[in-house]
Structures are given as structure tokens and as C-alpha cells.
Amino acid sequence: MTIKVFSAGFGRTGTLSLKQALEQLGFGPCHHMEEVIKTGPAQVQLWSEAADGKPDFKAIFDGYQSAVDWPTAAFWREMAAAYPDAKVILSSRTPESWVKSFSDTILKVLLDRPNWPPPMTDWLTMVTRVVIDRSLGGVTDPEGMIEVFKAHEAAVKAAIPADRLLVHSAKDGWEPLCAHLGVPIPATPYPRTNSTEEFFELMKGAGPG
């Protein structure tokens, strides 16, 4: 089993819905930050090593056919090279709506280091390195993050050939995604999940692995 498709889009761009969609289309299991939470210390250690410049994708993605969300999105260039036959998706939304969603969820937690529960410290340290340091270049102000988001999307579009890349928003639904992957369109609605409330419910499960 190898990675057949991955997303270069930042977290909070419909990545959990995309994970569910890919799994429904037969590209599961799909790696997502939720998988890191479920798997615990082993994945945290592997992604910490990736942040040190030593990614072991074979170990990280053992048993997975697809990957979305952070930490994957922070290593999209390496992923594109490591899996040259994999299709690439850029999960997207407007920069302004992304900043609000990200600021209300992930960023709020990462910037509240004094209140991190001890069992979550290793995981949140890794996430901070991957998200704030690597993807955002240390930028955490709203105006700056809008520019980083735009620059990230522009870089992905410039680096990945058009026939390999799909820019996809959750509102686009099944049709472009299925066309990109060469699979039939399901009869069921495109998944919609991971509201701000659901994010914090998921966080409650992010204790010791």
C-alpha cells in the first residue's frame, strides 16, 4: 500500500470532510491530524523527526493510501517528490475565512502554551513546530497569516503540474474530486464536518496516546 493522493492544503480548509470523502471513494485509510491523536506517541515521534529534517514517510504512512491536513501539508514538496505518481489536492477556502477558523481553533490552542495539559505537551510541541514554525514561518497575526496563506497556495499551484493538481473547496463537492481521481460520483452528499465545536470535542480526546 502506498500514498495515491494527498492534500497540500492547510488544516481548517475542509480537511476532515476531505478525509471522509477520500475514504468513501476507496482511498482509505486517510491520514489526518486526527490519526496522530488516535495513534499517539509513535506518530508524534515520527513527525517530530520529520520536523528535524528526517522524514520517514514509509513509517509515517504505513497502511495509508491518502493523507490530508497537517502535518502532511507542511511537507507537501517532499511528499510530491516521494510519491511522484500520487495525485495532489489543494484543499482551499477564502484566506479571510481560513484565518478566522484557524485563529478560533488550532492557533488558540497552540498559543496557550501555559495551559497545555501535561499529557498533550509532546504532541502540541510537534504541532507548533509543524504548523507555526514550518508552515507559517512564525507568523501569527491575522494580516500576516492571510499573506502566508496566499503565498502557500501560489507556491503549490506553481510547483505541481496542472494535470496532477486539483484545487478543491468543500462547497465544490464530489464532481471535480471524482473527475480528478477517476472514480464514480457517489449518490450520497459530500461530507460536511469539523465545525469549531467539533474541533474542541476532538481536542478532548488528544490526551495520552
Rank of each mutant, 00 (worst) to 15 (best):
M1L: 09
K4H: 09
F10N: 05
T13E: 11
L16K: 15
L18K: 14
K19G: 13
L22Q: 12
E23S: 07
G26H: 08
G28K: 08
G28A: 11
K38A: 15
G40W: 00
P41I: 00
Q43G: 00
W47G: 06
S48V: 03
P55W: 00
F57E: 10
K58E: 14
A59G: 06
G63N: 09
V68Y: 10
V68W: 08
D69P: 09
R77T: 03
A80K: 06
A80C: 10
A82D: 02
P84C: 07
V88Y: 06
I89F: 04
P95V: 13
E96M: 15
V99R: 09
F102D: 12
F102S: 05
D112N: 14
P119F: 02
V130E: 02
G138C: 03
D141I: 10
P142E: 01
I146E: 13
F149A: 09
H152F: 15
E153M: 05
A154I: 02
A155R: 04
V156W: 10
L166S: 01
V167E: 02
D172Q: 07
A179P: 01
L181M: 04
G182F: 02
P184V: 15
I185T: 15
I185M: 05
E197N: 03
F199V: 04
E201S: 10
G207W: 04
